[in-house]
């Protein structure tokens, strides 16, 4: 295990390096940021001078080296647009994003897993069909559409919940539901199919024959075995939610990292994009690490040599 940890740590470093190279290369494919950074009336000389000052006219490898040197010291440079330290900008937004992601995760998993189990146990019952329809709705509604609908119904028509922005816990409900809907659907469907598969297997039948109480069979024996793909997907979703809340954050005017990142991408604000991608990469690596550890706990057969 210790060896595994060390190896994993070393890999993490490589991942971060890889992410930074890929991001750097792709950012430069999206074009010279000068056009966006300077005002419309800047002349060709203004642009050339600016390019030189920012070092955009150096060879890419030199620019990357400069970036890496700073990044190793935790300095991602100043945002082109905001004139603030890029990493700070990202971290300032992190709490909002984490809050939203956790709420979305909580809502979706706490609804999806029970629905998935119940519809597997009571296959083809009314409950199964209702669960299926809910999952279907969740899957087939684009996030922006769902978000706008929720705002119109609960915010404007019924005046039950705030329509936008950050604030108390009531501000969280609509965006978290919007963000978590797809995860909910996906998790519910996956739980159902995994449970169905496992419930049909011999050892479950054996356990039942031995007189183990039905719910104990389902939760202790079946669910634990069904958990591996479910945990995998939840881990993945957690990552996607953290980075992919762009549309939800835009619709609900939520001041999170997703919105910052997408604005930075649109504005070719390279330092901010780098800092955001770096932060997300760290979090992904951490989540995947936790998921892998969970595997060994859930299924003793899985081991890391």
């Amino acid at each position: 295990m210790k060896k595994h940890l060390i190896r994993r740590f070393f890999q993490t470093f490589l991942v971060l390096l890889g992410v930074s190279i890929v991001t750097f290369a792709i950012l430069h494919l999206t074009g010279d940021p000068t056009a966006l950074l300077l005002p419309q009336e800047a002349t060709a000389e203004d642009r050339a001078r600016f390019r030189h000052e920012m070092g955009f006219d150096d060879p890419l490898i030199v620019q990357y080296g400069r970036f890496l040197k700073g990044a190793l010291r935790g300095d991602f440079g100043l945002s082109f647009r905001h004139n603030q330290p890029a990493l700070q900008l990202v971290w300032d937004r992190m709490p909002a994003t984490v809050q939203l992601t956790l709420a979305a995760m909580l809502i979706s998993v706490s609804i999806a897993v029970p629905i998935g189990i119940l519809s597997a146990v009571k296959r083809n019952s009314l409950l199964d069909h209702v669960g299926m329809v809910i999952a279907l709705l969740g899957q087939s509604m684009p996030v922006f559409w769902l978000g706008i609908m929720l705002i119109l119904v609960f915010g404007v028509k019924l005046r039950l919940l705030p329509a936008f922005g950050m604030g108390g816990i009531d501000h969280l409900i609509l965006p978290a539901l919007t963000l978590g809907m797809f995860t909910m659907a996906r998790t519910a469907r996956l739980t159902r199919s995994e449970m169905l598969e496992i419930l049909g297997q011999e050892y479950i039948r054996t356990a039942r024959a031995k007189g183990v109480p039905p719910w104990s069979v389902i939760l202790r024996h079946a669910l634990k075995n069904a958990a591996i793909p479910i945990v995998t997907v939840i881990g993945l979703e957690m990552g996607t939610l953290l980075g992919g809340a762009i549309i939800t954050e835009t619709i609900f005017a939520w001041p999170g990292v997703g919105r910052l990142t997408v604005q930075a991408i649109y504005n070719r604000d390279f330092p901010v994009v780098q800092a955001a991608v770096f932060t997300l990469a760290c979090i992904f690596v951490l989540i995947n690490f936790v998921v892998d550890i969970l595997y060994t706990y859930l299924d003793p057969r899985v081991r890391y040599e």
């Binding site: 922006f144 706008i148 705002i151 119109l152 915010g155 404007v156 005046r159 705030p162 329509a163 936008f164 922005g165 835009t250 619709i251 609900f252 005017a253 919105r259």
Partner: peptide, 18 residues
Amino acid sequence: FRPIPEATTRVAALLTGD
């Protein structure tokens, strides 16, 4: 001053009086 990027949300926020 509050930024609300999506136009439909802005209108919603105006209609709710926020």
